[in-house]
Write a protein that binds this DNA or RNA. Structure first.
Lengths: 356, 356
DNA sequence: CAAGTTGTGGGAAGCGCTTTCTCGACGACG
DNA sequence: CGTCGTCGAGAAAGCGCTTCCCACAACTTG
C-alpha cells in the first residue's frame, strides 16, 4: 500500500502502517465483516469451518489485533477495571495492586491505575476522570478521613457510576454504603493487644493517623479493647497522631521520645510503614528497639520480615485483598459472601516480651 | 425515563440509568451535536458564548462524562499508556510505576498496568493483548534474559506497534534497538567497588541473577572493573547465581555460607531486594551482617534505609526512571536527550569498613 | 410434496464520538 | 446597493466494531 509498487515485496503486512482492521481481514479472507467478527470473538453463532479457517489465516497474516476501544463502543461495555490507591510505591498498596492485577488477568480484564496521593479532592477528580473510561469495576483502596467535606460528593459520584451499571468495591473503608472488602482491623488489633499483655507488656503507647481515618481508628479502638480486657494500660496522652506514612511514624515516635517515654514499654503503630519509621526513630535516638522499647505494627507488609528487629505485627493478606475485591465486584451478590478478611497476630523479635 | 411518571421528580438526571451521552447534552442545550462536541473539548473552532454556556450548563446538569472509548475510536488515538513490569509488589517496580503514573497524570494520560511475572512468554502475550488498547505509549521495565528465544518475537511485535504509531520505551534493558531509559549500572557498580576497596575491603563475593540478564551482568561487570582497578579480589567461584528476587538473595547467600566464606569480607548483591535476602540469610546463620560479613546492594529502594544494618547501595532514582520513560516516549526525539541516568554510591552501616 | 425448521452468510443499522463540508447570516467595501 | 469574506451552526459522513434482521439453502415432517 505504502510502498512504491516496484520491487519485490513479500511480507505485505509489515510495510503497512495503520494496524489491520476487521474490514481488512474480511476482505483478505473474502468474507463479510459479520462473519469475520463472528469468527474472531466468541459469538454464539456458528461459522462454517471453511470460512472460519480462512478468517483465522487472514487475521494471522495481517497480524490483526482487535481495537478494544471500538469493541467497547460497539458492545457498550469495556473490559477495564480501574484501581485507585493512595500511593503506588507504598508496599501496602502495591501488594493490593498486585492482587488486583493478578485476578484481573485471570478474568481477562485490563487494569488501569491511578494514585490519589491521599488527597480527597484528587480522589474525587480521578473518579470523575476514570468514569470516562466506563470501567466495569472501580476499586478504591485506602481510607479517607470520614470528616472530609468532599466525601458526600464522592459517594454521589460512585452511586451515579453504579446506577450506570458499574461496580464499586472499597477495600478496608466501610464508611460508605457500598460493596466492601472488610478487614477485621478491630479484632486483629484486639488479639494483638491480648498477646502482648500475655507476654508481659503493661504500659503502651500508640502512634496512629489523623483523626477520622477509619482504618486507623478501628485498629486503635480494637487495641484499646484488648488492653481493657486484659489489664494493659494506654493513657490518652500516649496516643500520638501523625501522617499515616513511614515519615509520620518516624516523627510520631520522635515526639514521643522527646517528651520522654515515661514508662511506656511498647509502642503500637497503626500500620507497618509507621512502625518501620518508629523503629528508625528509636534507633536514631540511641535506643535499641525491641529491648529498650518494643514496637508492633499492623499489615505484615513483606519487608517487615527482613528488618531488625523483625516486626511483630498483625498479618493482613494484602494480595488476597486485591483478589477478593475484584472477585466481589464480579460476583452476582451484593454482599461479600466470604465475610470479613481474617487477620493473624505474628509475634517477632520487636516484642521479645517482659518477664515479670 | 425509568420512573413511573407519577410523583414529583426533581433531579431528573439521577433517575436515569445509562450515562448521559453527548447527544443528550446537545438536546438538553438545544444545540447540535457538533456544537456540543466543540464546546466540551478543546476544538480549534470557536463557539459563541451564548451556546457555549448553554452546553456547559447542560453537561453539568446531566453529569456528562465523555466516553473515552468513543473518543478514541473517533479520533483514532487514545490517551492511554501501557506499563509492563515484572512484579508490582517489588519495590523496584512499584517505585518506577509510581513515577510513570505521576508523570502520566500531568500529561492527562491514563496508565494501564500488567505484570509479566518474569515470564518472557507472558510478556509477549501481554504486549499482544495491550496492543489492542492502541495505547499511545508502551513502557517495559525489567530486563529479560538476552538468551530468551521469544526475544525476537517480542522485538517484532514492538516494531509493528511502533510502525502503527505507538511509542515504546524500555527501562534499563538496552538489548533491543528501541528507545531506552538507560541506567549507568556499570559505572555505578564500578564506583561502588572503588569506594569499598577504599574503606578497606579486599575479598569480595557477588550474588547475581541468571546468566543473560543484562542489568545484572552490567552491574557485575562494572563491579569487576572497579575491583580490577583498585586491587580488590573477586574469584569466579565466589560469583553466585540465583533468582533476581529477595528469595534468590537469601538462598544465594545461604549457599555461600554453607560452602564457607573462605575469607570473603563483603558480598555484593546485584540488587537491593537480593541484598535484603542475603542479610536475612546471614542473620539466620548466626552471623552479624555488617561486622562478620559486609553486604552491599544496588538500587536504593526505599526500605533499605530502615533495615539494620542500613544497606550500602548504589542509588538509582527509581521514580525518576518512570518519569523519564514517559517523557522520552512523548518527546519528539528518538534518543534520550537527558543521557543515561546517573547513580550515586551510598555508604551505610552494612559496610562499616575494615581498618588495615 | 408443501410447509415448516434449522443453520449460516451478509447487509446494514447503530454504538458515542469527531470533523469535514455546506450554508445562512452578517459586516465590510467599492 | 451588490458582492465578497468571514464567522459559526448544523448536517452528515465516518472511526472500527457488533448484532439485528433478512435471505437462502438444506433438512425435516406429516
Amino acid at each position: 500500500m505504502t510502498d512504491s509498487g516496484i520491487g519485490i515485496d513479500i511480507d505485505i503486512d509489515t510495510s503497512r502502517n495503520a494496524p489491520a482492521t476487521l474490514h481488512d481481514v474480511a476482505r483478505e479472507a473474502g468474507v463479510s465483516l459479520a462473519t469475520a467478527s463472528r469468527t474472531l470473538n466468541g459469538s454464539t453463532r456458528r461459522v462454517k469451518d471453511e470460512y472460519r479457517k480462512r478468517v483465522l489465516e487472514a487475521a494471522a497474516r495481517l497480524d490483526y489485533s482487535p481495537n478494544l476501544s471500538a469493541q467497547a463502543v460497539a458492545r457498550g461495555t469495556t473490559t477495564t477495571v480501574a484501581l485507585l490507591v493512595a500511593d503506588i510505591a507504598d508496599p501496602y498498596f502495591s501488594s493490593i495492586a498486585a492482587g488486583v492485577v493478578a485476578e484481573a488477568d485471570t478474568a481477562h480484564l485490563i487494569v488501569t491505575m491511578a494514585a490519589t496521593e491521599r488527597d480527597p479532592e484528587r480522589e474525587l477528580e480521578l473518579v470523575r476522570t476514570l468514569r470516562g473510561q466506563r470501567p466495569r469495576v472501580m476499586i478504591l483502596a485506602g481510607s479517607r478521613p470520614t470528616t472530609d467535606p468532599t466525601g458526600g460528593a464522592l459517594v454521589e459520584e460512585l452511586r451515579a457510576y453504579e446506577r450506570s451499571g458499574g461496580r464499586v468495591v472499597l477495600i478496608s473503608r466501610n464508611e460508605l454504603a457500598l460493596r466492601t472488602v472488610l478487614v477485621d482491623n478491630r479484632r486483629g488489633a484486639e488479639a494483638l493487644a491480648r498477646e502482648l499483655v500475655g507476654i508481659g507488656y503493661r504500659r503502651f503507647a500508640v502512634i496512629t493517623g489523623a483523626e477520622g481515618l477509619r482504618t486507623a481508628a478501628d485498629r486503635v479502638d480494637g487495641f484499646r479493647d484488648g488492653l481493657a480486657a486484659t489489664g494493659g494500660e494506654l493513657r490518652d496522652a500516649d496516643v500520638i497522631r501523625d501522617a499515616f506514612t513511614r515519615d509520620g511514624g518516624y516523627s510520631g515516635m520522635r515526639a514521643l521520645l522527646e517528651r520522654g517515654l515515661e514508662g511506656v514499654e511498647l509502642v503500637f503503630a497503626a500500620n507497618d510503614v509507621m512502625a518501620v519509621g518508629a523503629l528508625s526513630a528509636i534507633r536514631d535516638s540511641g535506643l535499641a528497639p525491641g529491648t529498650d522499647v518494643a514496637v508492633a505494627g499492623f499489615d505484615d507488609i513483606p519487608t517487615v520480615r527482613d528488618i531488625t528487629p523483625a516486626l511483630t505485627t498483625v498479618r493482613v493478606p494484602l494480595e488476597e485483598l486485591g483478589h477478593r475485591a475484584l472477585r466481589l465486584a464480579l460476583a452476582d451478590t451484593d454482599a461479600d459472601a466470604e465475610g470479613p478478611v481474617q487477620t493473624e497476630v505474628v509475634l517477632r523479635e520487636s516484642t521479645p516480651g517482659i518477664s515479670r
